[in-house]
Design a protein around this nucleic acid. Structure first.
Lengths: 113, 113
DNA sequence: TGTTCACATGAATATATGTTCATATGTCTA
DNA sequence: TAGACATATGAACATATATTCATGTGAACA
């Protein structure tokens, strides 16, 4: 809040008050922006979209998306920690799938922008 | 595509083919992810939300959101270049507003995640 | 015409983030 | 039980991105 710019007289206090009242609290915008940040990566979007089509193991995702196994694992960890994906273990493999379709629905919404 | 992992036999070729056919092309995911990346910043989300409430000048945004004038200007430039906001000049001031409500609608969709 | 105001912008800086590399873990099989 | 396979993960590295700082631009005004 720099005092060098914008004297009080030049501000429309009524507008500031109106907007301030209408806006949500900071936690709201922190949550929303962090959700979008997770969707703001090319490879994560592709992983989510792939899993929306079919449950897959790390190895299959790696081949399908032409990414290293390590990179896929790192990204899946992020998606796991944010409850976007779930997994089940079968023998040596770990099969991942979308936790629910909400996140994919949001991606489809973003399509129209 | 590392050849050290995942022999052909362990992959389900039918699944890979199915998913590969269902998925969009890379340009699609690049566009979507870059859109979400723009929404993946706390201050940009707040700017968009504020402008959804009311047209405002840089100075007012700066005070309202407790950000420096420079930072607001830089972020507005990004939003401008991506056609999220429009502006009009009046005397010494520049008033910004949302170009359309699509982007705000998307933010509201993200609320439920 | 010089000064103030409002905003824009380039450069520098700091930080966040994604990938790679090396390695650890756990499971299955010969 | 040794080795291959599938995945996870920490550290290092490279890159992207947001903010600050300094300064430039243009309009109003005395």
């Amino acid at each position: 809040m720099s005092s060098e710019v914008c004297e009080i007289k030049s501000l429309r206090q009524d507008v500031l008050e109106k907007v301030s009242n209408e806006m949500e609290d900071n936690e709201f915008y922190e949550k929303i922006s962090s959700t979008f940040k997770l969707l703001g990566d090319y490879n994560r979007i592709r992983i989510i979209s792939a899993l929306h089509c079919h449950e897959m193991c790390v190895c299959e995702l790696s081949i399908l998306l032409d990414m290293s196994q390590s990179s896929i694992s790192h990204q899946l960890r992020i998606l796991r920690h944010n409850n976007f994906v779930k997994y089940r273990k079968e023998d040596k493999k770990v099969f991942y799938s979308l936790n629910n379709s909400q996140i994919y629905d949001l991606i489809k919404e973003g399509e129209s922008i």
